[in-house]
């Protein structure tokens, strides 16, 4: 366990260096269109309005800025986090890609090899999503009307189908936790809808409920082992 950890820790350092460097680059790139409009066309919001815009963003998404990188860290790992919080699509593209890369390579998440495969999966998924968004930007308006209506309409079922397949993949490793997790999540979602709870709170509570289900099973199994011994 320890030897395995040390080799992983060096790789982790490399990833952190790469991650911080690329995040800084992305931070600048993020503002270039806005700055371009100012430099070449002289248009910029008033200083106080920029603060106001920031305030609106912070009020609407501020909690998500903090909650999401933390809630997703356990799944994305170090490199997956760095890539996802620049390239986006955490739940719908990056996580499934990481999970499938690990599955096909036959490695467990949370191990050194698991981290390697998650990085390979997340990074290669970026090329796919960038290619498709670019393709659709240029030809989407021309191609879409020619696709069968049946196919286009089925797009509205992409996300539930995707999340269910990924859930099956992660849940079948422990059937009790898998069944318990989704049942608890649906009950909590139902309560959340009734109480009109904000999205960020639901993310936190339901992710925590997954941990709680595992904890309960862990304690239950240990106590059962204890009684067997006794």
């Amino acid at each position: 366990m320890h030897a395995e950890f040390n080799t992983g820790s060096e790789f982790n350092k490399t990833l952190i260096t790469l991650g911080i460097a690329t995040l800084c680059f992305a931070l600048i790139a993020n503002f270039i269109p806005a700055i371009y409009l100012f430099v070449f066309h002289g248009i910029i919001p008033k200083g106080e309005d920029i603060l106001k815009i920031w305030g609106v963003a912070a009020a609407t998404y501020g909690v998500s800025w903090v909650v999401q990188p933390i809630a997703y860290y356990g799944v994305l790992g170090t490199s997956g986090s760095y890539i996802t919080w620049v390239a986006g699509s955490a739940g719908d593209i990056r996580l499934p890609a990481a999970a499938m890369a690990q599955k096909v390579a036959g490695v467990e998440s949370g191990t050194h090899e698991g981290d390697i495969m998650a990085t390979i999966g997340v990074a290669s998924s970026v090329f796919v999503s960038v290619a498709f968004v670019t393709l659709f930007t240029f030809i989407g308006a021309n191609v879409l009307p020619h696709l069968p209506q049946f196919f286009i309409k089925s797009f509205s079922f992409i996300l539930p189908a995707l999340f269910a397949a990924v859930y099956m993949e992660v849940a079948r490793k422990d059937i009790r936790a898998g069944v318990g997790g989704i049942v608890v999540a649906m009950i909590l979602t139902y309560i959340g809808i009734q109480l009109k709870a904000p999205g960020w709170a639901m993310t936190l509570i339901i992710v925590a409920s997954g941990v709680a289900v595992n904890r309960i099973l862990y304690v239950y199994d240990r106590s059962k082992k204890g009684t067997e011994k006794a």
């Binding site: 809630a71 997703y72 356990g74 799944v75 739940g91 996580l95 998440s109 949370g110 999340f163 990924v166 859930y167 992660v170 849940a171 490793k173 422990d174 936790a177 898998g178 997790g181 989704i182 608890v184 999540a185 979602t189 639901m202 993310t203 339901i206 992710v207 925590a208 409920s209 997954g210 941990v211 709680a212 289900v213 595992n214 904890r215």
Partner: peptide, 10 residues
Amino acid sequence: SGTIIGLFAY
């Protein structure tokens, strides 16, 4: 693994 289950359940 609980955070993974929780996240996808969410």
